[in-house]
Design a binder for these strands. Structure first.
Lengths: 215, 215
DNA sequence: CTCCTGATTAAACAGTCGTTCAATCAGGGG
DNA sequence: CCCCTGATTGAACGACTGTTTAATCAGGAG
């Protein structure tokens, strides 16, 4: 009964390290079993991946609430990868986000909801400016935040296959200064670009926009 | 002599649509030839991909200067994909950025250099605030911009395999309002977070930082 | 016409893939 | 003790993979 879990854990490690194109026999060998046994327990390779997805998502969700983060995905990942036991799952997550499956969608939605909560709490506390469209803003920030980390990971992660958490910390340290600067004082010197856009496009997220481009 | 180009173009289309795991015989069939001929012309599958990379990079680089963009990767891609002839290359680019190879690195570096130029010009013109570390800022913005678009693409691109340029335009329209808002008025209500950080970390990009955490 | 080079093909090769099958083995309930 | 269920294995299967090889074919040079 512990064998199935051993296979699943080995699959998470191997998939995270070498991608989902790796053969079933390699995963089986990692777990000390045969390829036939893997499908005996999980039915198929896709089902094995689904089992990995479910487990990783469940563990990360449970562990995420314990991690104290300032809201950036990279710092969350760095903090989780710091616990040696969770590092393979973070690696699996990155791989899964790159491939883009159901796990990726679920996780992104989860992180997006988190971002929305963080931002709303910040607005409530008076430290974050209110937005014309809070949902669009949080979605935008989440996409940029996760996507940026992912792009960086896909380019710099294979450099040092070991010390995995350190890589995320380095990335965090690299982006924190410009991010704080941008978030504190913006990028444009005045509001003219925003005002021009708002003049040109009549309140995109507004309720009633029943006059597209008639006359 | 035109056959090799036909094979390369078919490979760009097929790789972009189905990923690089697709078989050589499928690519060959798309070009109306045999798998053997593909390797006769290119040597191997990897060499074929390298040829695709070179061609796509050369074309996109040449065409990019003609495209009038406001600096975001999504708008550049949307504008390029609008020309039906370039759409497959944009698709190939997205696929390549997701896989993370030499093409991806080259393109990201290229776009990053562009971002740096745009920002410097904006600062010069007085419309963009100067930064404490212009290079770090442009790198940060480029990563976020490209990565966000990429994450969105990996999740929403397979929804409508046809009208490809429209998808990028939709994404642009979705992120433009919150982006303009963020760039115009920032995210924090005051500079306290930035000041706290600058107080805590003594000028990260500064030249002399020879007192880490001694006493 | 002859020769030769390059394009092109069909077939074969060696390998890996996921999956299936029959067999073996251990262990608990009747 | 016997039977049955589930774990486990090794081998096989068929379908792919990228690549190689031999053969055929067209066309220009001598």
């Amino acid at each position: 009964m512990a064998t199935a879990e051993r296979i699943r854990d080995a699959a998470i490690v191997r998939f995270g390290r070498d991608g989902f194109a790796i053969g079933l026999r390699t995963v089986a060998a990692d777990a000390g079993v045969t390829a036939g046994l893997v499908v005996h327990h999980f039915g198929s390779k896709d089902a094995l991946r689904r089992a990995c997805d479910e487990h990783v998502l469940a563990v990360i969700r449970a562990e995420k609430t314990k991690a104290v983060t300032t809201g950036t995905a990279a710092m969350l990942f760095a903090q989780l990868a710091q616990i040696e036991h969770f590092a393979p799952m973070v690696r699996y997550l990155v791989r899964s986000l790159q491939s883009g499956g159901d796990l990726a969608s679920a996780l992104v939605e989860h992180l997006m909801a988190d971002a929305q909560r963080y931002l709303a709490a910040g607005v409530e506390a008076g430290v974050i400016r209110p937005s014309r469209d809070p949902e669009a803003r949080s979605r935008f920030l989440a996409y940029q935040n996760i996507g940026g980390m992912l792009l960086w990971a896909s380019m710099h992660l294979d450099d040092h296959p070991d010390d995995f958490s350190a890589a995320f910390r380095r990335y965090s340290e690299e982006i924190t200064p410009p991010a704080l600067e941008l978030f504190s004082q913006g990028l444009f010197v005045d509001r003219s670009m925003l005002d021009d856009y708002l003049m040109y496009v009549p309140d995109p997220p507004s309720a009633d926009d029943a006059a597209p481009t008639a006359s």
